[in-house]
Nucleic acid binder design. Structure first.
Length: 103
RNA sequence: UCAGUUAGCCAUAUGGUCGCAGUCUGCUUGUGAUGAGCAGAGUGAGGAAAGUCCGAGCUCCCAGAGAACAAAAUGCUAGUUAACGACUAGUGGAGGCGACUCUAAGGAAAGUGCAACAGAAAUAAACCGCUUAAAAUUAAGCAAGGGUGGAAAGGUAGGGUAAGAGCCUACCGAGAGGUUGGAGACAAUCUCUGCUCUGUAAACCCCAUUUGGAGCAAGGUUAAGUAAAGGCAUAUGCGUGUUCUCUCGCGCCUUUCAAAAAUACCGCUUGAAGCUUUUGGCGACAAAAGUUCUAGAUAGAUGACCAUAGAAUACAGAACUCGGCUUACAGACUAACUGAUAAA
RNA sequence: GGAGGUUUGGCUGAGCGGUCGAAAGCGGCGGUCUUGAAAACCGUUGUACCUUUGCGGGUACCUGGGGUUCGAAUCCCUAAGCCUCCG
């Protein structure tokens, strides 16, 4: 099963209609899905850093969500990174993602 | 040993657990169509992948040929290259004790422009001066010294003179001509000319050489329109820098709407390719033989944890593909050479 | 990925290689007016370093670094930041 969001349309739909949660370095958009499946997309803007930094942040977020299985409900998510996230360690990032999914 | 110069090379490795993206094979299954799932095998970022500063391939547009103009680029010589504004070897110039490094390096006597302020004067000659005569003014001669400036009529020394001056001589510099060496840039040397003619071309320009435009978001396949509206207009129009000539073709341009539609597939990775050896060349590089196939995504693939070794913690992530240039960078290693000190 | 533009004082924004630390406006500060404020009018106003008891004076700075030129905000090279566009 594919659990990634890939279409530009789906992203803009979530940005418009989704429910928002904030922490210091993250924003989470959430909306209920009509299928019995969850999907999650990751967004890291150019403000965060150069290409290799952005890739690293995205990989870490993917890894954390996959290992800890945070996204359980049948919903669609977009996890957006804010400035400053590139300086967090792996463990700090995990704490923060845990926090935002508990909200 | 210390300080340096140049060239090259590496850019963590090995093992384990979970996970990602293509490819191939096998099995299962499905759609209007492309497919989807599981298992196994094997592959998976860089020296700069970056900046996009040059040059090419490739694709589309420009109807074909010729001429002129415009615009842009390059600028010592010879070579290398598919090509280049790159590279190599040299020449001239600048820097360094040296190894060596840097160099947008054609033309100012084709023409035009500009040179603020200062200074008497800026391409031009007399402010302070010097000398002689006369006597406090003037006349004649001079350009050595002072001062201004980035630049002031070749420089230094000697002779000469009323004072001076290439006025004369020697050396240096400059120009013209010859000879020799070199493929050439140019170098060496000889003779002649006492030798006015600033700087700027990274101002216009002149000379020589080169260049059609856009870029893979190019463009194509499937599917889907002989859709609608407006403007110009039947050759005096349009045809990708402009103009002209000949041949030729055709209506041309703009806007809006529709479809899963910035979609699916192709383009997409075998290429002026890499590696090894030999030969030619001072070198850039070329030729031959053998050998290898080694990313191809499209919200965009490499991460997390543990162990061992360790100097490796930097800069940094392919997006059609090559050749360069430029910029960023923790460090490790190798070779050759230079200077200083010490010892033999 | 590709193509282009731009950067000048606290902000906006002119600027012919020389009189330019730089026009003009907004803003700030001081004054006039007012019981007080606003508006209006008048004046003034960049930063850093050095020097001076102070007034004042000098040097550097037009995104950073080089170069051409006697002289650069302006011309050339190079790097950085910001902005726009694409079937």
């Amino acid at each position: 099963m594919d659990h990634r969001l890939r279409k530009n349309k789906q992203f803009s739909y979530l940005y418009k209609k989704g429910e928002k949660f904030y922490t210091r370095h993250l924003i989470l958009f959430k909306i209920c899905s009509k299928f019995k499946n969850y999907k999650i997309g990751f967004s890291v803007s150019k403000k965060i850093g150069k290409a290799n930094v952005r890739n690293k942040v995205k990989r870490r977020m993917k890894e954390i969500v996959r290992v800890n299985n945070f996204a359980k409900d049948y919903s669609n998510y977009v996890l957006m990174a804010k400035e400053g996230i590139e300086n967090l360690s792996f463990l700090d990032l995990r704490k923060e993602i845990e926090e935002i999914f508990n909200k």
